[in-house]
Nucleic acid binder design. Structure first.
Lengths: 408, 408
DNA sequence: TCGCTTTGTGCTCCGTCCGAACAAAACAGG
DNA sequence: CCTGTTTTGTTCGGACGGAGCACAAAGCGA
């Protein structure tokens, strides 16, 4: 009897995956740098780069367009193949969705927005999302290697269900990953002659953090904390060693119920003064004495207020109040997670911009150890970071083992 | 010119390390299981086991003492070589220290306690520790492959300094790792003809968690949270995928300043009602209306009280109060970290034992998502878990690459 | 005793990457 | 323009870890 091999240590034994990841994240602009980053010989790096080019994933330019200025033979330049394959990425938000085709390197190749004025059930919304995506695929004629979805809700793993999809009026526990998978398969978006790739879904803040880690403000971080607020509530995410930390059931970094104001208003969780109700756009508008508009416009409304009426003492006071509460929450998270960098998205990004010194001071004051207190606070820098993060999820199998993903 | 190799992807390319780790943690009792766990062929597993035996680390018994009951040829049994090499492990606590020689598998081969009645500076204490350890080595004649130290303080990385060594009256920022390293090198504890191995230091709760993960209540967990209290303050630790998560500067899981009682007593951190002052032995004794003894006996005093006088309504009320506060803190941590298991040490272990239902209910009630609420809460099971954890730290290089660590 | 099942062992083969020698492409200086 | 220097790319042989296969060994059950 022959032996049954249980593939366990099998994943990505060659340097192909790491090499692609280096080009993907822009850390290997030339073959010489790739050689150094991989820690292999020039011969190996050359073979690896050639194979990735053969697979149609990267481009190797032997004619460097510009002299580097340094001595020696110029190295071949490496870049993502602009006509290469894409993945289907989508983001669902309070009042609509956005579908896109995203290439390696976080390049958005094509994108299409969609609006939904009435709350619609997930099956309908995701059907529209996939229809928009497959339209884009037909128009561009690209090959599609995977699909990823960002939703404004915690996503339970391994089920792939949306647990608190507040903004989109779906029922708690909606199996968004399975629905999305089904719609994508129906649309016949992938190569017909090969096994269909896995389809992914994740929380939008988590995916924003992942995208920022690979292509934005989080580049180079080994221990990245991201905190962001959209319209209601506060979300968090942690990227450890380049991988999203989702916890054992996908529910890690649900930071909304940290206590930041013991005398604060009651929260639906039973406590009071939670970050969720003390540091989101609604809290900001209330603190500034403004009337809150419809749910899907709270972020825009807050952002406009902060930018256009910062001279108004009430607005400034509200900003300071939110900064202080956010700072308290961040300090608690820094004490627990000890990240090497913190990036802020949504309204928190604007608050940081409005008074960086104040927020840094609060965090430094309330987190232990001066060293942790000096953790850098940075704004998110990518447009559509959740969308790009959804694409990262879909690209991951290719990054892990390009050969397997493309030919096996 | 020949190429300069920068060793980067070099670590542990063969299956030797993973195999040793499986035997070390008891997950590979036989060669057949080892084959399955490694996901390699029987031939490879056989070669690997033989090599580990040659290195003197494990024992391969071809004569199984007991029939397995199942059909087929009985597999060779694998076990840690009882006469194999050891590491020097030590733990410093409020009123003394303990030195030990620890083999693979978490086996304490020899141990020696030490007492210090007056606060002593770290250089003196660690000198005594190493003296005790090298005495043990001389008595047993074992080969020593590394050294690890557990201290009741956060340890900053990569400096290896003790940031808040409250119980031992050392100055904040004492370079304990360097001092320990120096003393160990002076004592000529390692093989003379080989480069001296690295020496490690870590926080005692962190190391307890690591030990429990490999040999105790945390076995098999991928996402283990540990919370414990000794005499004063509360410590936390997280073991992710079998590795201690220390954060970017070693200060992760400083959980003492989570707010668990908004109206609580002020804490030195500037806030009030912190876990540190609301859920440690001192808080328990105070709540029970008892006079607190000397610092180094608070845990014993609390434990005795809980065991012997639980009938006393004041004691029971104090226990319930602490359980409620601890539960609030655990719920916050569960929301942030989403562990698959929580283990409790020190007084928290006893509190769990005194009323498991109450603590589980509080955590379930205050952590989001019923699913996370049902995260298992378990007591620590190992004696001297910090000590064994310190040994784990010292064993890690051997587990990562046995060949390199033993012969290179 | 004879199958049946499971595990251990001895070979060959293959893929990945190292190491070294050599070639190519730039710059600097005369 | 030519030459040496520097840096990078290329080619080829070989080491090494592990797969795959055939066969042997060691237990159970009838």
């Amino acid at each position: 009897m022959t032996q049954t091999r249980t593939t366990r240590l099998e994943r990505g034994r060659s340097a192909l995956g790491p090499a692609l990841e280096l080009v993907h994240t822009g850390r290997a602009p030339t073959r010489a740098v790739l050689t150094a980053e991989l820690g292999v010989t020039r011969a190996t790096a050359g073979a690896v780069a050639a194979e990735l080019e053969t697979l149609g994933l990267i481009r190797v330019d032997s004619r460097p367009r510009s002299a580097t200025g340094s001595q020696g033979r110029p190295s071949h330049r490496l870049s993502i193949e602009p006509q290469g394959p894409v993945v289907l990425a989508a983001q669902v938000h309070a009042d609509g969705f956005r579908a896109a085709l995203v290439g390696l390197g976080g390049n958005i190749v094509a994108t299409a927005p969609g609006r939904m004025t009435v709350p619609a059930d997930p099956a309908h919304v995701l059907g529209e999302v996939v229809r928009a995506g497959s339209d884009l695929l037909r128009q561009t004629g690209r090959r599609c290697l995977g699909a990823g979805l960002a939703v404004p809700s915690a996503v339970a793993e391994p089920q792939g269900t949306a647990l608190n999809p507040l903004h989109v009026a779906w029922h708690a526990g909606a199996p968004v990953r399975d629905i999305f998978t089904e719609r994508v398969r129906e649309a016949a978006v992938f190569d017909r002659d090969r096994p269909a790739p896995a389809v992914f879904a994740g929380n939008d803040v988590n995916l924003a953090a992942l995208a920022e880690h690979r292509h934005g403000a989080g580049r180079g971080s080994r221990d990245l904390l991201c905190v962001a607020t959209g319209h209601r509530g506060v979300g968090g995410a942690l990227v450890l060693d380049g991988r999203l930390h989702t916890g054992s059931t996908g529910l890690a970094l649900e930071v909304g119920h940290l206590t930041v104001n013991p005398e604060g208003r009651p929260c639906h969780c039973g406590s009071r003064g939670c970050l969720d109700v003390e540091a989101d756009p609604l809290a900001f508008l209330t603190a500034a004495g403004r009337e809150a508009g419809p749910e899907g416009s709270l972020l825009r409304q807050s952002r406009d207020l902060l930018r256009d009426e910062y001279a108004d003492p009430a607005v400034r006071a509200a900003a300071h109040l939110l900064i202080d509460r956010l700072g308290l929450g961040l300090a608690g998270l820094v004490n627990i997670l000890n990240p090497d960098r913190v990036i802020l998205g949504g309204l928190h990004r604007e608050l940081l911009g409005s008074d960086p010194g104040r927020l840094r001071a609060v965090v430094a004051d309330r987190s232990l150890w001066g060293q942790s207190g000096s953790v850098p606070l940075l704004p998110c820098t990518l447009d559509h970071n959740s969308l790009i993060g959804a694409a990262e999820l879909a690209w991951q199998p290719v990054l892990d083992d390009p050969l397997e993903a493309l030919t096996a």
